[in-house]
């Protein structure tokens, strides 16, 4: 078996223009959903209303214990069949699914960050008669988010790495495109290897950098 360099050069252009664009889109928008919805979930979990915090806890627990793939199927195949019959495109369903799945992880990240803020900070805010909203936006969250930064970076890398699962619901990301290229010639070695290397080349340095950041924030 020898490597077809000419074909590799040919398809690499397609792989990195169309496929890469979609993967980047999924990662960026998935991360935005995860970071915002995760913060919301983390705050709901802390709610003083019992049923709200319980519901948030169960939601996080359930989503974290079931496979992302099945959740994607649910969004893509089930939502259109139940009222109000929302039909999402594969890409939208994928971004939402990925975002909500990882929101349940980021909720834990934020929670740890908020728990890490010394209780004195809350007490000081109360003593200064700061309103609830001000306490959170100017005192607690800025400190909590700084602590959460490395872990959020890990989530970002995880979203990037897991984005190929969207290819199973027909999104043509890097892996989806590689699969399609492979099926044209029934030769998967070159496209899948190039696509796999692409993930390694980006994900490994990223996680090494996050580890450095983690150490720097620690001391």
């Amino acid at each position: 078996m020898n490597w077809d360099w000419e074909w590799t050069r040919e398809f690499s252009v397609e792989l990195f223009t169309t496929g890469l664009k979609v993967t980047a889109q999924i990662t960026v928008f998935g991360a935005i959903v995860a970071f915002i919805f995760g913060l919301l979930l983390a705050l709901l979990r802390r709610s003083k209303i019992l049923w709200v915090s319980t519901a948030a806890r169960w939601f996080i627990q359930f989503v974290r214990s079931t496979p992302l793939l099945v959740q994607l199927f649910f969004l893509f195949y089930v939502l259109p069949t139940i009222p109000p019959n929302i039909k999402l495109s594969a890409l939208t369903a994928g971004i939402l699914g990925l975002g909500v799945h990882y929101a349940c992880y980021t909720a834990e990240v934020y929670r740890a960050g908020i728990d890490g803020v010394p209780p004195g900070q809350f007490e000081a805010a109360t003593a200064l008669n700061l309103p609830q909203v001000r306490t959170w936006t100017s005192v607690i969250l800025p400190q909590a988010l700084r602590r959460s930064l490395p872990a959020l970076g890990n989530v970002l890398v995880a979203i990037f790495k897991e984005s190929p699962q969207l290819s199973i619901i027909t999104v043509l990301d890097v892996i989806g495109t590689a699969q399609e290229l492979g099926s044209e010639r029934f030769r998967y070695l070159e496209p899948l290897t190039v696509a796999g290397l692409f993930f390694l080349v980006l994900a490994i340095p990223a996680s090494i950098m996050i580890r450095r950041l983690e150490r720097r924030l620690e001391y």
Binding site: Q179, L189, S207
Partner: peptide, 23 residues
């Protein structure tokens, strides 16, 4: 450790199942 944590299960699965037979 770095190699197998660098890409997701799905990518590795596809590679082992579809690409490796060629080698």
């Amino acid at each position: 450790m770095e190699f197998f944590r660098g890409a997701s299960v799905l990518v590795q699965l596809f590679w082992i199942f579809y690409a490796m037979p060629a080698i």
